[in-house]
Simulated scan of single mutants.
Amino acid sequence: MPPPTIDPTDPEALVKELFSDERWAKDQFFEHLSDPLLALCEALAGCFRSMERLKNAAGQINTQRISLVAAFMYGVLDDLVISTKLLLTGKLSAAGNVMRQVVEGIAMSILCSTDDPLIIAWKKKKPIKALYWQKVWNEDQQAQGYLAIDQLNWNADKLGVTDAGVEQLRQAKKRYNAYSHCGTTTITCRVSIEEPGVFHLGGEFDEAKLDLYRAELVSRNALCRLLPGLIQHLTETMTPPGAVVARAVVPAQRADHQEQ
């Protein structure tokens, strides 16, 4: 079945497009990718079940720092849902842009999980330390999301994050950076591979991109299967002093620090 077409010079047609549920594209995705979609939803449901425990713990303690941990982690799950919804309309660049926020949100939630000073920057090869969560709360320039992966790397040992975890987040951010800025990657996302030169307005499904769609779903599935361990770790950081805190289940091979 061919995709629906609209006349973009007609204001009424554009209004209909803006309120479209992109049913044609979504039906095509489910027809071709139902198995990885169902697997993703199963993994994502497990994340939300883990999130309930974190929310309960945060509600009992109710401090600014704990609220930030919970808010960032809930944002991670919400962005995963939104990104996947965008993916299921064929909008790879928009979906990838939101996934970059997922990666940064994971790092920021971990960085907010301690009351100890953390390294937030380097000056003349000397670390600059501060309470990260306070910097976030005050919307300080040194706590912007694009810095979070490097900051997590500098503090990984203190925060109980594995080297493999930081590197995985770094590689994910690098991958999704290409979707977050205008360039050849975002152009390719809009062009039909099956019909070169044809651009799509609104939802689309390009069967020639099936491997790419599948890879995106599999990648989200793998991330969702790691997140419950991280959420459990963050929940345990909310326990009274003296409680045993597990190591975070997050990826990474740490690079040397960068002077800023």
Rank of each mutant, 00 (worst) to 15 (best):
D7I: 00
P8S: 09
T9H: 15
P11S: 07
V15D: 15
E17H: 13
A25Y: 06
A25H: 05
E31Q: 13
L33G: 11
A45K: 12
G46C: 05
G46W: 00
C47R: 02
F48G: 00
L54W: 06
K55L: 14
I61R: 15
T63A: 15
T63W: 11
T63R: 14
R65L: 04
V69A: 07
V76G: 05
D78G: 01
I82V: 12
L86I: 15
A94Y: 03
A94N: 03
N97H: 09
M99Q: 12
V102W: 05
A107M: 04
S109N: 07
I110D: 09
S113P: 07
L118A: 06
A121C: 02
A121Y: 05
K125R: 14
P127C: 03
I128V: 12
K129C: 02
N138R: 09
N153K: 07
D157P: 00
L159G: 11
G160E: 08
G160S: 10
D163M: 09
A164E: 12
G165D: 13
Q171W: 00
K174D: 11
K174F: 07
C182E: 11
R190Y: 03
V191I: 15
G197K: 11
F199W: 10
G203C: 06
G203H: 04
E207C: 00
L210D: 11
E216H: 06
S219N: 11
C224V: 02
H233V: 03
M238Y: 04
V249I: 12
D256M: 08
H257P: 15
